[in-house]
Each structure stands twice: as structure tokens, then as C-alpha cells.
Design a binder for these strands. Sequence first.
DNA 1: TCCGTATCTAGGCGCCGTAAAGATATCTTG
DNA 2: CAAGATATCTTTACGGCGCCTAGATACGGA
Lengths: 208, 208
Amino acid sequence: MSNAPAEARPYHHGDLSRALVDAARRLLESEGPSALSLRAVAREAGVSPAAPYHHFKDKGELLDAVAHEGWLMLDEALGRAKAAAPSIREAVAELGVAYVCFARDHPALYRVMYDCARDKESLPEAMQQDGDSAYCKVRDTLIEAGADPSASVDLELATVAAWCSAHGLAEMTSFKQFDPLKEACGGETAFLRAVFNHMGLVRAALGE
Amino acid sequence: MSNAPAEARPYHHGDLSRALVDAARRLLESEGPSALSLRAVAREAGVSPAAPYHHFKDKGELLDAVAHEGWLMLDEALGRAKAAAPSIREAVAELGVAYVCFARDHPALYRVMYDCARDKESLPEAMQQDGDSAYCKVRDTLIEAGADPSASVDLELATVAAWCSAHGLAEMTSFKQFDPLKEACGGETAFLRAVFNHMGLVRAALGE
DNA sequence: TCCGTATCTAGGCGCCGTAAAGATATCTTG
DNA sequence: CAAGATATCTTTACGGCGCCTAGATACGGA
């Protein structure tokens, strides 16, 4: 192994943990969450079934790593949506739409993200206070949209409400019962905006 | 077997499918969803590992039966909540609180319900049109609270919004990050009401 | 150069979902 | 009531799973 890719490359394989997470995400996209066995991930990465155990305590820890990347991706998606919002007034709804679209475009990853969170009864710690996390982006946007930052409980409640709404809608949109309703609204994003509007989220955030 | 329990009792065991579903729900409550293997269910019911295959096509079909009972229970819980609401104005929020409390009290069952629904990308068909399903209860309550029944798209959107909000909140309340916020609100149900209020659900439903 | 250590493989354990074949109890038909 | 048909359950078996232990291998520092 002479032609190393200039990266810090450990002993045998060359950053196997990285390769395992990538393999897991590949399998997740192509075969769905139910096909994501630790052995299949090792197979996909071209190593023996026991190799992952030198980098992850167990299957759950590998899934945690996959989920972590999902939260980072979601964070980026929300950041892009906020930047692209035409006005701060609409930014809250835009965040919601972007959130649901992320879940629609990466359904298996999204499922792993929340499955991991439920198992430990806690959202990833990076969500809460790091200032630039997805959750904080929502809260900051609410403030910029006019919410009172000194009413900390109200602000937190509004953030939770927004997050719950987006998550709930993200899980519902995949059900085919709502297809006719989407059509009646004139497309999926129009449907999403309409539902968010019916939740009164923006109005509530601005205290109207 | 002379002392039959007066019920219609099939060949050997006596309504094994019933016993299997009961055993599954027992295991679900005591050991959680991850421990719910088909073999464990058969063990709990006192039959061989292959016996369930004469009553259910595969594990998924058994879980479907369990989930179905869950939806019935949720339906009943919402019915009780609506009946107990002090005024029709508050009935919508009461339904939401009852929904979340159901999910909190039967977390494993609730998870199975939505896992089954996600797998077939469809909520149980009994949810949509049967007139007395959980979903219809929400819609009817919105009408009674003042929503315009002739604006069918708006009405449907409001129902979806309410359902999404409740589901989203149901999944979030289990995360321990929100414990301090619950305390600041003065208890869990106060927290639930506050979040629903911040969603502006009732206001939106009444078109204010 | 050589040893310690990090990394990976081989093999095995007990569990899982499920299929096939045989045993047994019940229903049906005469 | 007899006897064949049928539904129910058991036994056995296969491959895959998560995970563990022991051994082989390659790298890094002394």
C-alpha cells in the first residue's frame, strides 16, 4: 500500500470506520432500513463480519454514527432554506418545508435518526445548545421573526411546537391516503405550506 | 377438553390467533418492541415456533393484528376525551392531549402501530372513512367547534394539521431534553396544552 | 531489529424468521 | 357411527443475524 490518499490512514484498511458508515448509508438508500444488518455493512465494505467491532461497540453505535451524519445533513438543509427565504416572515414556514422535504428525500436515514433518538430517549446532544444546531436555527428564526427572546419559556414552547409540527407532517406525508389532498392543494410543497398554515405556526410565533 | 369456555373454540388450542395477539401485547408491554420476536410470542403463548404460521402469513401480519387493536384503543381513548371535554371549544385540545397521553402510556404499542403503517405507506384503512374512526373523530370535532364543513379541502387540511401536531408531540415528549420545560409549565399536561396552544391549532380550526 | 499493539479474520454460539414434512385432533360425509 | 378429508400443531432444518473468543497480520515506536 504505497499510494496512500494523502489522508491519515490507519493500519490495514484505511479509515474503516469511515468506510463502514459510508457503506451503511449506501445500503440504507438502496435497500431500506430493514436490510441494514451489521454483517451486510461489513460485506458492503469488503471486510469480515467481526471487523466493525474494532471501531464500534455494537450495531447501535454504528447506527448512531450514521444518524449523526443525518442530523448534520438536516442542519445544513435548514441553513440553506433559511438563507433562501424571501423574507424573515416566511422563513419559519420555509424551515418547515425544508425539514419535511429532507425527510421525504432521505426516508431511511430519517428513520434511523429518530430510531436512535428514541432508543436513548434523547435527541442528539448537539441539538440543544451548540448555537448552530438545527433546533437552535428554528429558535433563532422565531426570534428574528419577532418572537420575544426574553419570554424564554414561551420561546422554547414555540420552538418545540414548530419542531413537532414538522416532524409530524414529515411522517404523515408518506402515507398515500393524503395523495388526493396534495393534488387538491396543487402539489406537495403547496400542501405542506397549507398544513403549516392551518397549524397557525407563524401566527403563534409572532404572538398574533 | 370437556369444559370449554362456552366460546366458539377451534380445533386444538382454542383461538390461538387471539392468544398470540394477547401474548404479543403482553411481551410488548413488558419487554419492549425489540424483544417482540415471533418465536418469543409463540413461547409466551405456549406453542411451537411454527404454530403461528397457521394463523398469520408472517411476522408482519401478526404485528398488523396487534397494531389494529392499538388503533381501536386509540379510537376509544379519543372518544372518551371528547365526551369528557368541558366545552366544544376545548374539545380539540382535549383530543390532542388524549392522543399524546395514549402514546405515552403505550409507547411500544404506539411504535408498532406506526411502524406497520410506514411499512405499507398507509394508515389503516379503517382510519379514513368509517365515520367513527379516530381520524374522523378529529374532523367531526373540528366541525362542531365551528369549522366550515363545506370547505372540504380546508377541513381536511385542518384535520391533517391536528393529527400531525399530535403525532409530532407524541414522539417528542419522550425525549428527556424537554423535561425542564415540562416542569416550567407545571406538569406534563400543562406542557402539552401549552405546545398545542403555540401551534395555534384551535385558532386555526376556527378560522380566527 | 524487535516487540507491543492496533487491526482484521476464522470459527462458533444462540437467537431469529420461515419452510417442509409428519403427527394429531376435529369436521364432514356417508 | 365409521372413515376419509381437513385444519391444527410439532419436529426438524436452513440460512442469516448480533456478538464473542482466539488467532493471524501488519503497523509504529523502542
